[in-house]
Write a protein that binds this DNA or RNA. Structure first.
Lengths: 126, 126
DNA sequence: CTAGTTGCAAAGCATTTGCCTGTGG
DNA sequence: CCACAGGCAAATGCTTTGCAACTAG
């Protein structure tokens, strides 16, 4: 039912190698060398499959299309950083703690998402 | 150059009255009674104008289209809560503090965004 | 073999833009 | 008056889907 094809390997490898969340376009570019001519439909379909299979995790980015990261990155609670200059999203370790003190009366808390913005080392240096 | 029309008043009033960030669709619905037949183009064009004029502020929601809130709500630093059940976004007071401890070596911090998820009082009660 | 996969092109959505009519000042 | 605004519809940009050809197992 889940067949092993070079397109799927290319996409999963791209995610694993990147070490950071990728957009569908970035995945397609990264997969292009391992599987030339790979189509966008395949990229999107494969993303959906990988997410359902738990091998990839969607990373919602405020105001932008979702990115996706390899499941191994999602094993621990973490957040993300987006570079103002190059637009890349990076993983951040840790979490500043509970958000409960921000919650008004009557609301229940299930999860939270934190995004930091600034410059990544490569761009800050330039 | 900025003409006062009933469509623009309807949209600005909708934002002011809502007291929480609205999607373009929600704005159109809310403006419908004050300005029947208002078109989507007008809603989007007006949003853009209001944002440029500083009367409305975009609220980026992870994985979803932007919402917008009235400028008065953005005068102080705050974050947002999204209800899992009804999908509405609410303003939250305060901020749990600095995020600098999450930042790896070499990154610079400009801003941050926090989103909490759970149930709002209306939905949690039901 | 043959059901799962792929590529292409068309279809969907949300948002933007062009164009011509309408109207605020 | 007449330049700014509004409504409609076509155009975008991103993502999904239908379909016929292809291929892994």
């Amino acid at each position: 039912m889940t067949r092993r094809t070079k397109q799927r390997e290319a996409i999963l490898d791209a995610l694993a190698d990147a070490g950071r969340p990728l957009t569908p376009i970035e995945m397609q570019d990264a997969a292009e060398s391992a599987s030339p001519g790979i189509s966008q439909s395949t990229v999107y379909r494969t993303i959906k499959l990988l997410v359902e299979a738990g091998e990839a995790v969607p990373v919602p980015v405020p105001g932008e299309p979702d990115r996706y990261e390899h499941a191994s990155a999602a094993e621990h609670h973490h957040h993300h950083f987006k570079c103002d200059a190059c637009g890349k999203v990076f993983d951040l370790e840790g979490c500043s703690g509970s958000m409960k003190n921000m919650l008004p009366e009557g609301f229940t808390l299930r999860d939270h998402e934190i995004f930091l913005y600034g410059d990544c080392p490569a761009c800050a240096g330039a």
